[in-house]
Design a binder for these strands. Sequence first.
DNA 1: GCCAACGTTGGC
DNA 2: GCCAACGTTGGC
Length: 154
Amino acid sequence: MTNTWLMKSEPDCFSIDDLASRPNQTEAWDGVRNYQARNMMRDQMRLGDRVFFYHSNCKVPGIAGIAEISKVSFADHTQFEPDSQYFDPKATLAKPIWYLVEVQFVEKFNAVLSLEQMRHTPGLEDMLLLRKGSRLSITPVTNEQGQIIMSLAL
DNA sequence: GCCAACGTTGGC
DNA sequence: GCCAACGTTGGC
């Protein structure tokens, strides 16, 4: 059973083009410091799960393309690095606090499927992304929502 | 740049 | 364990 997720990234920081140009087109999704998001990565994501790569905090926020989970949950190394902005002094090697997954590029949409368009698409009303005040950087997407999104993607 | 909504922190 | 204060997210 393959699930679908939506993962946000600020394109100024890390965009889908950045992912596509990485060696192996993979990237460890480090720096997540929210427990709900961590729990999804740690406990629920499976190899091959589909990821909608969402560009946030930019001119046209929306889904820029697709990735997939290429490596399941392991400790986020940045929590151990004092020089990292993601350093967590409470974390130890024996007891890591933060976990991440690795994602791999699959495809880039010809055009970003905008937040605006998703808001106006019947069938997507219940997407967690569209909830007022929703800031969670990782959210589950239902199969139905996933199919609708794929039908809109160019 | 503004600010609403949310999560976290820490005093009590 | 409550909750005010604070910091962050992210659309607009």
